[in-house]
Simulated scan of single mutants.
Amino acid sequence: MTTTMTPTTRMPRGLRTMFRDAHVTRLAVVLVALLAFFAIVKWPNFSSVATWQSMAMQFPEFGLLALGVMLTMVLGGIDLSVVGTANMTAIATAMLMLKIAPEGSASSTGYLALGAGVAFSLVVGAVAGAINGFLVAKVKIPAILVTLGTFELYTGIALVISGGKPISGMPPEYAYVMGSRIASYIPMVLIIFVIGAVIVWYLMNRTAFGTKLYMLGSNETAANFTGLKTTSLIVRTYTISGVFAASAGLVMLANYNSAKADYGSTYTLLAIL
């Protein structure tokens, strides 16, 4: 018995998925059309390496937020607190690094502050996300109300601990690592986003966690009858969203070399979109 290979079946799995999903296909067509339009209208700027490097520096901020929000939306919820989480963790991390490595500290101390700051930020982001998940899963408050409330809470915490002022003067080692470029062209923050996207792809396509997430998001009642531990799944999903928000906070801290409670105020709708 022979199998006829059509052009579609010979495509990589990712492309086959795109052509099977009409929504993704339309988005791809719109993206190509927009790129073609700007290439025709503004070719000198469009073809400039500096333009693409600038984009690669800017979009990972809300790109990382979007990855976390996406997971909660697949679940059937939403996370409106991501910007508040990002700013709160960025401010707390900046203050910790300045405490460990004040101005004039040795390079080794600066790298110690960098490592401690990154670890601290991710832990705080995970805790903030877990609080959201607990309130949604156990207290049974709608996700939109929980995350809107915690957005205000986390923003308030950021305002209190920073006194409403920007925290600046990061150790130079932080800017050196986070602001570096691979092969002189690719920004480190873009690499961080790509790593995050690969992690999400792996979780959603290669693990039982992703399958359960789709099941719960498609039909919560049926998922409960199958024996899924929905509470644990919801808490873990919002925890991951908090970690991605904290990662976005670290990128914002690197891009601005400072942290403030109202940075990225327009990113929430972009992340949801």
Rank of each mutant, 00 (worst) to 15 (best):
L67C: 00
F193A: 03
Q53W: 06
V24F: 07
W43K: 12
S241K: 06
A259G: 10
M95R: 14
T85S: 11
F46S: 05
G249E: 00
R236T: 11
L65T: 04
V69R: 00
S108G: 06
V127E: 11
F38Q: 13
T155S: 15
A254D: 00
G84E: 01
S247L: 15
V194A: 12
F193T: 00
A56T: 11
A126Y: 03
A143G: 13
G242Y: 05
A128D: 01
N87M: 06
Y176A: 15
I78H: 02
L270S: 07
T155P: 01
G149V: 07
T25C: 09
M170Q: 14
I167A: 08
L228H: 09
S108A: 14
P12N: 11
G249T: 00
A36Y: 14
L114Y: 11
L80T: 02
M204V: 12
G164A: 10
A39P: 10
F62Y: 13
A33S: 14
S241I: 02
A116T: 03
S241H: 06
F209R: 12
A22R: 13
P166R: 02
M18Y: 00
G264S: 10
A130G: 06
I131G: 05
F209Y: 15
K42S: 14
Q53D: 05
P172I: 09
A197T: 06
A208H: 14
S107R: 10
A39Q: 15
G156W: 07
V30G: 04
A50C: 00
A245N: 06
L269H: 05
Y214L: 14
S265G: 03
T147K: 04
M11L: 15
T268Y: 01
P44N: 13
N132S: 11
P7G: 08
T89N: 04
A92E: 08
M57K: 10
F225E: 12
G84D: 01
S218W: 02
G156H: 10
I100S: 05
M1I: 14
G129F: 03
V177M: 08
M95E: 11
Y263A: 10
G117Y: 09
A116Y: 06
T226D: 12
Y202N: 09
Y256N: 14
I141L: 13
V235C: 07
A36E: 11
I144V: 10
P12D: 02
Y238H: 13
T109S: 04
S121V: 00
D262W: 03
T25Y: 09
V235L: 09
A143T: 01
G110Y: 02
M11S: 13
S121D: 02
A197R: 05
I195S: 07
T268A: 08
I240Q: 00
G133D: 01
Y174R: 00
L253C: 02
I100A: 03
L148N: 10
L15N: 01
T25G: 07
E220K: 15
V200G: 08
E103D: 13
I78G: 04
F59W: 12
T9W: 03
V32L: 15
G210C: 09
A246N: 03
V146I: 11
P60D: 05
F134R: 03
R206G: 06
L145H: 01
L64D: 05
N224Y: 14
L114W: 01
M204G: 10
A94Y: 10
T6K: 05
I131D: 04
L80Q: 00
A246D: 00
A143H: 04
K138P: 00
S105K: 07
